[in-house]
């Protein structure tokens, strides 16, 4: 589904990603871990199409298409979803209307008729139950005055509504208390399916207690320095990143 080959990316002339390679197949859950500043969020921004990042080398195929040649909105319409680490507030735009616009823009792109109000509401009701979010939140302006937990839950709700092929969850666990984390993780687990891939970006292992990944990768200084299964995450939890980063630094000497 997603094939990343030798991606190098800069921001403001500073090189952050220095040759990333990653293959993700439908139905798989991958976790990318790594210390702060290793390039985790840059990777998600590059995949989603943030313009400030300049890709200097490499290519990305998404469902057979050249992802990097598509504008951000078309990547989304093709089925790439990014749950933001810091969801943005848009005053005066209700969450419901925002999501409706998003759903219908995607349908238009795919040549489908827009959802009528009744079908949309029905879909909302179903997904609301799935991710344990309540109506009152959805009639408020998007993310405005939401607590950290509400923002993250709203991201997962949007993911449920947009039914992406590939969901990238950027530090979705950050800033959540244990109850909020459990609810958010439950929501994500319900969205796992055989035709959907999930890329979890996280600093801590604790999210992986709730969402079991198939593969774990460690990102360090803009490169994936180690890949493994979920046991790797547990090892990281126990020993810290040092044992990997030191080895990587040694290898680079």
């Amino acid at each position: 589904m997603l094939s990343i080959k030798n991606i190098h990316a800069n921001i403001d002339g500073k090189q952050i990603l220095k040759g990333i390679n990653l293959e993700i197949k439908a139905g798989e859950v991958h976790a990318i871990m790594g210390p702060n500043g290793s390039g985790k969020s840059t990777l998600s921004s590059v995949l989603a199409g943030r313009e400030e990042y300049e890709v200097t080398e490499g290519e990305v195929k998404f469902l057979g298409k050249d992802l990097l040649s598509l504008p951000a909105e078309d990547r989304a319409r093709e089925g790439l979803f990014l749950a933001f680490q810091y969801p943005v507030e848009i005053p005066g735009v209700s969450t419901t209307n925002f999501i409706k616009a998003a759903v219908n823009e995607k349908r238009k792109y795919l040549g489908q008729d827009p959802l009528d109000a009744v079908s949309f509401l029905k879909m909302m009701k179903e997904k609301m139950a799935m991710v344990e979010i309540n109506q009152s939140l959805l009639s408020r302006s998007i993310n405005e005055g939401f607590s950290g937990g509400e923002k993250k839950r709203n991201e997962v709700f949007q993911m449920a509504m947009l039914e992406p092929k590939l969901a990238i969850l950027d530090e979705t666990d950050s800033g959540l208390d244990i109850d909020a984390l459990r609810i958010v993780a439950n929501g994500i687990n319900k969205l796992r399916s055989s035709d959907r891939a999930i890329l979890l970006i996280t600093h801590y292992q604790r999210l992986l207690d709730y969402i079991q990944p198939d593969f774990v990768h460690v990102l360090y200084k803009g490169k994936i320095v180690k890949s493994g299964t979920k046991e790797l995450a547990l090892e990281l939890e126990e020993r810290g990143y040092d044992f990997i980063t030191e080895a990587a630094d040694m290898a680079n000497l």
Binding site: I90, P91, G92, F98, A101, Q158
Partner: peptide, 30 residues
Amino acid sequence: IGEDQLFYCKQRGIDAETAVAMIVNGFAKE
């Protein structure tokens, strides 16, 4: 209108022109 707001909309499949109209109407809603 912030780049962050526009990017958030675009990532949801909403193009810049529609996003700006939405943000402006939200601003004027009261």
